[in-house]
């Protein structure tokens, strides 16, 4: 499986949950914590993200940055640890 991960800008996130629904891997959930604006923010709740960018595409506040295992390491079938 291709491995990926995301970074959420927790101060920008408004907790709208659109990314949670858009994630085919069900990797995302709302945190129990709130940011300084009073919004619960999104976080990874499973380590099965594939870096498909669906969550970032639908995020109205551009709060998500996505990373993926490089093509090189996929080719070499490198072991990854998350």
């Amino acid at each position: 499986m291709i491995r990926g991960t995301i970074k959420v800008d927790t101060e920008i996130c408004k907790g709208c949950e659109l990314c949670i629904t858009a994630c085919p891997q069900k990797s995302l959930g709302l945190s129990n914590n709130i940011n300084s604006h009073g919004f619960k923010y999104v976080e990874l709740i499973q380590d099965n993200c594939t870096g498909c960018i669906n969550c970032a595409l639908v995020c109205p506040d551009s709060a998500i940055t996505v990373y993926r295992q490089s093509k090189n390491s996929i080719k070499q079938n490198k072991k990854v640890t998350v």
């Binding site: 960018i53 595409l57 940055t65 990373y67 993926r68 295992q69 093509k71 990854v80 640890t81 998350v82």
Partner: peptide, 10 residues
């Protein structure tokens, strides 16, 4: 997250 060779994709 300690994926080796992480690439920014978005």
């Amino acid at each position: 997250c300690e994926i080796e060779d992480l690439e920014l994709v978005y």
